[in-house]
């Protein structure tokens, strides 16, 4: 689980082009959207593609993303439950 969280942090920084953000600066429970990393609607869509492409998880309803992408911790627990 810890490995997965670190992996996700690295992917978020890389794929969402978060310049000058280091892995250590993202806490597991930090909110990804709004106040936290300041991600926006395009980033949310990018995370949906990441779930599909890297973990084989297709969201039936994109609205589910809101809860799943709350933090690195919520993402990691969703992925470990649903990954193929």
């Amino acid at each position: 689980m810890t490995d997965l969280k670190e992996e996700l942090k690295a992917k978020i920084i890389e794929q969402l082009n978060l310049e000058d953000v280091a892995i250590e600066e993202i806490a597991d429970k930090d909110p990804l959207f709004g106040e936290g990393l300041g991600l926006d609607s395009i980033d949310a869509l990018e995370l949906i593609v990441m779930l599909d492409k890297d973990y084989g998880i297709k969201l039936a309803d994109p609205k589910e993303g809101r809860a799943i992408f709350e933090s690195v911790e919520t993402m990691a627990s969703y992925i470990s439950e649903h990954r193929k």
């Binding site: 969402l16 869509l45 990018e46």
Partner: peptide, 9 residues
């Protein structure tokens, strides 16, 4: 196909 929304836009 894995289109990237951040590229497509």
């Amino acid at each position: 196909p894995f289109a990237s929304p951040a590229v497509f836009v």
